Structure formats: C-alpha cells, structure tokens
Simulated scan of single mutants.
Amino acid sequence: MSENNNPPEEKKRPEGITNSYRERLKALKQARQYSVAGDIPKAVERYSTYLYALASYFGVTEDKLSPSFFDTEKEISELLLISHAYWDLSKAYDRSPNLHKESIRCLDQFVKFTNGFKYQHINAQMLKKFIKRKQAHNMKAFQNAYTKIQVDSKGCFIASYSYGPEHTVTNDLRKFKQAIVNYRLGFRFVEVYYNTSPAIINFLEKSGIFGCLLNKVFIRPTLLLISKSARHL
C-alpha cells in the first residue's frame, strides 16, 4: 500500500469519516499485533475498524465492500491487505460455532478480494496450508473457499501474459478451465497451473530476448493449440 494515508481528492466527506480513513492503517497494524499476541477479541475489533473505515469512506456498509471501489493497479497493496483482514476474521469467527455464518461471510469476502489478482497464488497457498493443518472447525467452509478460488477465478495468467487478458485464445482457455475443473484430474491440473504460473511469468519477464523468443516459439503456439481443442468441448 502507498505510505500516503490521505484519502483521494474526491467529493467532500464528513470529517469523522475522512479522519477514520486516514487512521485506518494504524487500526490494521494494531489488529495484527493483537492477533500475534493471541488477543483475538481485540484483533477482531481492530480489523473491523479498519474495514469499516474503508466502507464508510466509499459510502457503503462493510459487507458491501468490493474490489470495484479501488484502482486495481495503484491500490493493489491495499486490496491484498483487505483480503488478509478478511482471512484473519474468518479464522477468528470460525473458533465459535455461533459465529460460523460470519466466518463464511468473511471467507466469501476473502475470495472476492483474491480472485483475479496478482497475489491469488499466495492467498490460495495460505488457505491450502491452513486446510492441510486441519485447524478449521468448519472445515467444509474453508474447503469451499479454496474451490471457489480455483474454479470461479477468471485468471488465466500465462495466457493473459502471452496473448492479453481479452484475447480470443485467453477466453477459450478460460472456458477450457471451466470444462475440466469439475473432474478430479482437471481440478489438479488447474491447481498446478495456478501454482506454477507466477514463477513462469517471472522467468519470462527476467529473461529478456530469450523470454520473448520462448514465448513466441513455444508458449503461444502451445496455448493456441489448447484453445482450438477447447472449442470442441
């Protein structure tokens, strides 16, 4: 997130809302400190303060907070922080059977602020490790959240890098993913694709001319072949 805590220069807002917006990162920092210390009630209160400050600034209730309110390029750091706030809240509420509905709601928000963003792989792995450690009380809810990230996401990272996010090939591959993800092997393929995509793209970007050549000679033709096959599914 940008170190500038001042709200964007837009329409005039009540001073209380503007001040809360400016102070939101302090609340977030305190929430993390309480979480590490194991003081979950105070952590929940501070995370809620952070999210309410954002929601109030945009004129909505906290449950209506959406990535659409943010500049997904300039404010990507804030989007990541929001996703992690909802993640910690979902785990906190999961501790109490009476709050499982609230835990699920926060998980849904976590997914909403995860899918399609550059940090999707990081969040997916964080969720997967949590599930593997069997720390959740409502395990099904966390497993469903992981499935939503893998199934519902429109991300097709290598194709988007190679052809562009709205190219016909990229859209064909999105449809291909939707066609295979309901099968066990297909789901595993999509999972591996998401897990390896960031490293592949990072390699291509850092390889200069070699990366451009590899993309043109091997990756683009391979993706084109798969997309043509997908049209017949």
Score class of each variant (00 low, 15 high):
Ser2Phe: 00
Asn5Val: 03
Pro8Glu: 10
Pro8Phe: 01
Lys11Pro: 00
Ile17Cys: 04
Ile17Leu: 00
Ser20Arg: 09
Arg22Lys: 14
Arg24Asn: 06
Leu25Pro: 00
Leu28Tyr: 09
Leu28Phe: 07
Gln30Met: 03
Tyr34Val: 01
Gly38His: 04
Gly38Glu: 03
Lys42Val: 01
Val44Trp: 00
Arg46Met: 12
Arg46Asp: 10
Tyr47Trp: 07
Ser48Thr: 15
Tyr50Thr: 09
Tyr52Leu: 11
Leu54Ala: 10
Ala55Phe: 02
Phe58Lys: 11
Gly59Lys: 06
Phe70Tyr: 12
Glu73Val: 15
Glu73Trp: 00
Glu75Pro: 05
Ile76Lys: 13
Leu80Pro: 01
Ile82Gly: 04
His84Leu: 13
Ala85Val: 07
Tyr86Cys: 06
Asp88Arg: 14
Arg95Asn: 10
Ser96Ile: 01
Asn98Glu: 14
Glu102Tyr: 14
Ile104Gly: 05
Ile104Ala: 13
Ile104Phe: 12
Arg105Asp: 09
Cys106Gly: 05
Lys112Tyr: 03
Asn115Gln: 13
Asn115Cys: 13
Gln120Ala: 11
His121Ser: 14
Asn123His: 11
Ile131Leu: 07
Ala136Cys: 01
Ala136Pro: 02
His137Leu: 07
Asn138Trp: 12
Asn138His: 13
Asn144Cys: 07
Thr147Tyr: 04
Lys148Ile: 02
Gln150Leu: 15
Val151Trp: 07
Ser153Arg: 04
Ile158Glu: 06
Ile158Pro: 00
Ser160Asn: 12
Glu166His: 15
His167Met: 00
Thr168Cys: 02
Thr168Met: 00
Val169Cys: 01
Thr170Ser: 05
Asn171Leu: 12
Asp172Ala: 13
Phe176Glu: 04
Lys177Trp: 07
Lys177Asp: 03
Ile180Arg: 09
Leu185Ser: 10
Phe187Asn: 15
Arg188Ala: 14
Tyr194Thr: 09
Asn195Ile: 00
Thr196Glu: 11
Ala199Glu: 11
Phe203Ile: 13
Gly208Val: 10
Gly208Tyr: 06
Cys212Asn: 15
Leu213His: 14
Val217Glu: 00
Val217Ala: 11
Pro221Gln: 08
Pro221Phe: 04
Ile226Met: 11
Ser227Thr: 09
Lys228Val: 12
Lys228Cys: 11
